[in-house]
Nucleic acid binder design. Sequence first.
DNA 1: TTGACGTATATCCATATGGGTATACGATCG
DNA 2: CGATCGTATACCCATATGGATATACGTCAA
Lengths: 115, 115
Amino acid sequence: MARAATTTDAFNAVAEPRRRQILDVLAGGERSVNDLVESLGLAQPLVSKHLRVLREVGLVDVRDAGRQRMYRIDGRPLKPIYDWIKPYEQAWSARFERLDAVLEELKEQEDDDHR
Amino acid sequence: MARAATTTDAFNAVAEPRRRQILDVLAGGERSVNDLVESLGLAQPLVSKHLRVLREVGLVDVRDAGRQRMYRIDGRPLKPIYDWIKPYEQAWSARFERLDAVLEELKEQEDDDHR
DNA sequence: TTGACGTATATCCATATGGGTATACGATCG
DNA sequence: CGATCGTATACCCATATGGATATACGTCAA
């Protein structure tokens, strides 16, 4: 088997930075394809392709408006990601850490340029 | 260009279900490769490969213990994902929705088999 | 030392990605 | 009607994936 299709689920769809950007723009309200092309500075066919992926996983809805197509975000498919990742939040926000974890933190800050 | 490497960032690394499973197991504490192989029912080379990806994005740490290698989770690289997705939480948890959004919900339930 | 164990790596394969370019298609305008 | 606009699709390419299998490598036990 190869890598799972980008249209498999929100996890895969959202792994692509440009698609996150698109969602971020759409979070500001409905936009036409050209609006997005302009906002993102990407080639139009590229944007259309990304929108297709987002559509297939249900992250956006489309509406016809004359010769334009207005895209709107639908964040619900993001819930599984949020639900999965939330328990790990403590990993970095916990106030009460074990000593060795704290020491780890400090050591990390030294060689901060490693990642 | 092709799809971004899985080792590009946590977004890409975590898009693969098996790697999420591995992290979920490791959330229960340090594990050897064979422990993971058993827990997940995957082929050993597969597990090693997935662990390599997780290592490269910093989601796991390794420790040598004789002939075993003990893996430990490090959830910090997940923070960017959490930070990105969090603002969208309202999309599904908002209590006060605009009327048209509510109507959308109802309509969606009808043709629920469309997606 | 020899062998078994635990793990990583090397291949091989099918697949579909993101980007680029060209073009098709529907809607609107003149 | 014809032209133009807004968008989607069709190709082409290089790339690296996830899985399978075989094997290499280091560690420990006998």
